[in-house]
């Protein structure tokens, strides 16, 4: 078991921010026919700290949505407990806790016979809010005020997602829970969504969401939690995970015509552990060099001093969410 995926109490307390949600040993099993048991979630332990953006990643069927359903009180864990704002919500999400949560389900459906503004009014009233001006402002902020009086049945998927976002903001909740909020969105809608998430996070709101691997998600997430086959395989900030995993950065060198590779030099810096691996491509006069991020400056200095007359171009690709996810998912497949 990797140390990275464990979250000790000292980790929880190491910054001043308090955990507003704590999941302890969550297990979810489904009984199948013939005495078989499907374990959807196993020993899920993590907490969500105030003001952070925590993103849960995982392949389809990994258990992400099941976990969100458990947190939202739609289903009960087989064993384990959840505390949200200090209240045990393992069996049911009480009203006073629900009042602090803004939620967008994986697939958003509204009452087709209501217009956008009527939908806002309906959910507003359910939350004891009757401020039409606020509802109009919220619709305006998500960019659908022009369609406020149109029936929701005529809305596109992206518009419904924006409406769901506006609805989730009615209560001005302390924590937002989004289940696959970007699924099915076009790139511009994803960008808009990310901007909205940034906006609410900048206002000190906490966000817990499940998502696919997207560069935009990487930019806004303070921490990520990788779930594979119902188990947490990684949990932490992206830089810490990269450091802990030792995932290499790649530098691509393109050389001028007539350049000849000196393998001995590359072997030499490899022996000095400046790089972890290298690969030549003689046809396009290119070299891919993998190295650990801490060696970056020293390596670049070495390359420049050695090849400053031969280099045509140089680019660096740092590992990110995709590499972290691939690392664990490949490992999982290999272990399976």
């Amino acid at each position: 078991m990797l140390k990275l995926k464990e979250e000790s109490n000292s980790d929880k307390m190491k910054d001043n921010k308090l955990p507003i949600m704590e999941l302890n040993n969550i297990n979810k099993e489904y009984k199948l026919g013939g005495g078989y048991v499907f374990k959807a979630l196993a020993d899920i332990n993590f907490s969500v700290k105030e003001g952070e953006v925590l993103t849960i990643l995982g392949h389809n069927g990994a258990g992400k949505s099941t976990l969100i359903k458990i947190i939202m009180g739609f289903t009960k864990p087989t064993t384990g407990s959840i505390k949200i704002f200090g209240t045990d919500t393992s069996k049911m999400l009480p009203k006073h806790v629900k009042a602090k949560i803004g939620y967008i389900p994986e697939v958003v459906h509204f009452y087709g016979n209501l217009s956008g503004i009527e939908t806002m009014e309906f959910f507003g009233k359910l939350n004891n809010l009757y401020n039409k001006k606020l509802f109009e402002e919220l619709l305006d902020k998500v960019g659908i005020s022009g369609a406020a009086n149109k029936k929701v049945v005529s809305y596109s998927k992206g518009m419904k997602q924006r409406l769901a976002f506006a609805v989730s903001r009615i209560k001005d909740p302390d924590i937002y829970i989004f289940d696959e909020p970007t699924s099915g969105m076009d790139p511009s809608a994803v960008n808009d969504f990310i901007s909205l998430v940034r906006l609410i996070n900048d206002n000190g709101k906490t966000i817990l969401m499940t998502a696919h691997i997207l560069p935009e998600i990487e930019d806004i997430s303070n921490r990520i939690c990788v779930i594979l086959n119902g188990k947490i395989t990684a949990l932490g900030g992206i830089p810490e995970l990269l450091e802990g995993l030792g995932l290499p950065t790649t530098i691509n060198l393109r050389f001028k015509n007539g350049f000849k590779f000196e393998e001995s030099w590359f072997e030499n810096i490899k022996n000095f552990k400046l790089i972890t691996d290298y690969k030549f491509n003689d046809k396009i006069l290119s070299a891919n060099i993998k190295f650990i991020e801490t060696k970056r400056i020293k390596l670049i200095n070495e390359i420049i001093s050695k090849y400053h007359d031969d280099l045509a171009d140089m680019s660096i690709k740092k590992p990110g969410l995709f590499e972290i996810f691939s690392h664990f998912s490949n490992k999982k497949v290999y272990n399976d």
């Binding site: 939202m72 009180g73 739609f74 009203k95 629900k98 009042a99 949560i101 939620y103 389900p105 697939v107 958003v108 459906h109 509204f110 009452y111 959910f123 359910l126 939350n127 004891n128 769901a164 609805v167 209560k171």
Partner: peptide, 14 residues
């Protein structure tokens, strides 16, 4: 079936 229940249940209504 219409998928409106999750949002309804997530509101402050019990």
């Amino acid at each position: 079936e219409d998928g409106t229940m999750p949002l309804l249940l997530s509101s402050s209504a019990s």
